[in-house]
């Protein structure tokens, strides 16, 4: 009972994040309209979250920031999954020299800091969010393909797949029937946690001036622009700060929770199999 309750809560929260992202597309108020006479105002009917040091509407900026901070993190992880999963299935199913080449190259880059690559790319291409996305994808896709490769190998060496091969199933059918179901939950868990991590990376890089550039209202960039006003209007830092931490917390804890429940299911399934085998 408790379990379904909290998974409903997560669903609700993710729907809320999605709603915010959609809303940020249609929000009618400008996030960059400067109005100096109205600067540093507290929340009011006209400005629900008040105004910043240049008199810009904080609510509109927060919404724009959501599409940067969350949107670009989702983009980076989706691209990594789209690249990494097929590569992992290929290496895992084909084996041989493809697999060996793959592990050789992958080994070195597996623990490579995406931050360092993002620094290098912003040095070469100039600072910007797209460069951060490229850096993340270059590092992350290998991690996904490693994950997928391992599971694929395990699955394809099992009896079920052997039976399918004997029965004449095509490779595509085997991937669909055996590989996908096995990797799905693992990829979901890893990517959920990763979205949280990448959000923090994007916000951090924007904070130090190497990610989103002003006047873009990325949440980390907003914190940077308002940092001199901590004493006078802490609201300007606490709102984007809480938004970053809250959204990252949502993704992290959802990934955590799913990991636990999937792992539990998996060990239960294995035990079930064991019992059946011992019969």
């Amino acid at each position: 009972m408790k379990r379904t309750l909290s998974s409903r809560l997560y669903l609700l929260l993710f729907l809320f994040v999605f709603f915010i992202l959609v809303l940020s597309w249609f929000w009618p108020v400008s996030s960059s309209a400067v109005s100096v006479p109205e600067r540093l105002q507290g929340p009011s009917a006209a400005y629900w979250l008040g105004t910043d040091q240049l008199g810009r509407d904080v609510l509109a900026r927060m919404l724009e920031g959501a599409s940067y901070t969350i949107g670009f993190s989702l983009l980076a992880i989706v691209l990594s999954v789209l690249l990494g999963v097929p590569a992992g299935i290929l290496a895992g199913m084909k084996g041989g020299w493809i697999d060996r080449l793959f592990t050789r190259i992958g080994d070195s880059f597996l623990a490579f800091p995406d931050f360092l690559l993002a620094l290098l790319l912003s040095a070469v291409l100039g600072p910007g969010l797209f460069n951060v996305v490229i850096a993340v994808v270059l590092v992350k896709w290998i991690q996904y393909s490693y994950l997928v490769r391992g599971i694929t190998r395990e699955v394809t060496q099992g009896q079920a797949v052997l039976l399918s091969i004997i029965n004449g199933s095509s490779t595509a059918a085997i991937i669909k029937a055996h590989v996908f179901p096995a990797i799905r939950s693992h990829v979901l868990v890893m990517s959920t946690t990763d979205v949280g991590k990448v959000m923090l990376l994007i916000a951090s890089l924007s904070y130090i001036g190497l990610g989103a550039q002003p006047p873009s209202a990325e949440w980390g960039a907003m914190l940077n622009e308002s940092r001199a006003y901590f004493t006078d209007s802490p609201r300007l830092l606490l709102i984007p700060g809480a938004a970053i931490a809250g959204t990252a917390l949502l993704f992290h804890s959802a990934g955590d929770k799913w990991r636990d429940s999937f792992l539990k299911e998996e060990t239960e399934a294995k035990e079930e199999k064991q019992r059946a085998a011992n019969g």
Partner: peptide, 18 residues
Amino acid sequence: AVTGASVPSFLIGLVLIQ
């Protein structure tokens, strides 16, 4: 642990400075 992993370090830094 989960909360600590979610709060960006620059925010912790800003709060500690303040």
